[in-house]
Design a protein around this nucleic acid. Structure first.
Ligand SMILES: [Mn+2]
Ligand SMILES: [Mn+2]
Ligand SMILES: [Zn+2]
Ligand SMILES: [Zn+2]
Lengths: 149, 149
DNA sequence: TTCTAAATAAGAATAAGTCGCAACAGGAGC
DNA sequence: GCTCCTGTTGCGACTTATTCTTATTTAGAA
């Protein structure tokens, strides 16, 4: 979280781009510098507005392209998903989700082990606990075997 | 998961709407019947296409309005959120998220307790495990005290 | 049955994200 | 340091998910 950590992230970034033979443009540097320093979890638009001041010609498209590039290289992850629709869930009982990253299917699973945990206590410094849910990412059986789709 | 469960869900639905003094329209009934029977986690468009056959005049907007109504009444929950942007995360170390449902802020938290769990084993019937993360929903300190926004 | 507020359908409007293409710029090789 | 080539950018048009506006319809109270 200190400047050393930001420095380390920037070094990792330049290293990975070089290794992958990808150009180190000023836009990419600026975008990565901005996200490396962010404590929050910014969206593309937020970074864009922030960077626009020092780099007025920057386009939102470049911000998106750079962020997805970083995601592909494993240098950032995402919260939420790429232009996808909200999905609804009728299952009111306490459960968790297995999400297939290939086909997007979501399956419910139950876990007494997880339900027994006291997460509320662990997050009390952040605020009032309402609920918790585990999201497991993986490849579903169908996609694994190539049965369907 | 059987027809009894679907029946139970439909009863709960009609009860809650009546209690809240909200009209039981044929569209709402059809939409809820469809989602009550769904094993997956459908999006609005999927339900719309499915229902369009038996109710050709149905509009997508009604599907959205009905689903958000159900969500407000606590009869369905959502995976992902209402028209929101993807957010990016530079924190590469294993961590979890505290999400404020009021202001949308996302804070990282660390939990040796959670990391120790073997979720991979619990989901092996669904497919290949890649990663897991806990999402805690709550109200953050700022929103709780009204400090900011 | 009548009446009225609430709900719907349709289409226009937003908002997030992407695409196609002409102009531009890293950086490898000289 | 200069040149060239390819990858990258900026722009504007486009797509997709979701919401708004408004005229019309309907559930359900009286
Ligand atoms: Mn579920
Ligand atoms: Mn995070
Ligand atoms: Zn799958
Ligand atoms: Zn908050």
């Amino acid at each position: 979280m200190g400047p050393k950590e930001i420095e380390r992230r920037l070094d990792l970034f330049t290293q990975r781009l070089r290794d992958a033979g990808i150009k180190l443009t000023s836009q990419r540097m600026a975008i990565f510098r901005a996200i490396a320093a962010s404590e929050q979890h910014p969206d593309a638009e937020t970074l864009y507005r922030e960077l626009k001041e020092s780099c007025p010609s920057l386009s939102i498209d470049t911000v998106y392209r750079s962020l997805w590039l970083l995601a592909e290289l494993g240098l950032v992850s995402t919260v939420g998903q790429r232009h996808e629709a909200v999905r609804f869930d009728v299952n009111l009982s306490r459960h968790h989700h297995f999400v297939c990253i290939r086909c997007g299917s979501i399956q419910d699973f139950y876990s007494p082990q997880l339900d027994r945990l006291d997460v509320a206590e662990e997050v009390q410094d952040f605020g009032a606990f309402i609920s918790s849910q585990v999201e497991v990412r993986g490849i579903c059986k169908k996609c694994e075997t190539g049965t369907d789709q």
